[in-house]
């Protein structure tokens, strides 16, 4: 097994284990840690987590594919997640999506980000960018380069 949790993460895992009635509850927390550590979730990481929390690898794999925020492959491009749900759509998400076309980024269409009052919205990594317009998008992308 070539995936090993960092010392810091191992410590967090030990602490978290005391906070739940079963180590199985650490499934999502461990997946997050693995994804942060490696940038994606590898099969090796799944095996390591399986040993750590007592859920079979296949079940964890099923979990990973259930949620939209986990990646099974390394992400090489900036992942621009544009909300395409109703409030954003009403407020111009189509224009944002069109504006992004052809740029050197991965464009993901995501569902409502819970930011409808400041539509249109996009998320890059863990950060929300709200009340977008094409110029603002350009500035944001420039600042992230």
């Amino acid at each position: 097994m070539s995936f090993v949790f960092s010392k810091e993460n191992l410590l967090r895992i030990e602490t978290l284990k005391k906070r739940y009635p079963s180590p199985k509850a650490l499934c999502l927390p461990c997946l997050w840690m693995a994804q942060h550590q490696e940038g994606y979730i590898s099969i090796d990481a799944i095996d390591t987590i399986s040993e750590e929390i007592g859920i079979a690898p296949m079940e964890i794999y099923g979990v990973v594919t259930f949620y939209t925020m986990f990646h099974l492959e390394p992400q090489d491009k900036l992942n621009v997640q544009v909300c395409k749900t109703l409030s954003c759509k009403l407020c111009g998400s189509d224009e944002i999506l069109k504006h992004l076309e052809g740029k050197d980024v991965k464009i993901s269409h995501v569902e409502c980000l819970g930011s409808c009052g400041t539509a249109p919205v996009m998320q890059i990594d863990d950060v929300y960018y709200e009340e977008l317009n094409p110029e603002k998008v350009d500035e944001i992308l420039k600042s992230l380069r």
């Binding site: 906070r19 999502l28 949620y67 939209t68 925020m69 986990f70 995501v110």
Partner: peptide, 9 residues
């Protein structure tokens, strides 16, 4: 304890 989801309505 805060438990983080991962994208599923």
């Amino acid at each position: 304890t805060v438990h983080r989801g991962a994208g599923a309505y």
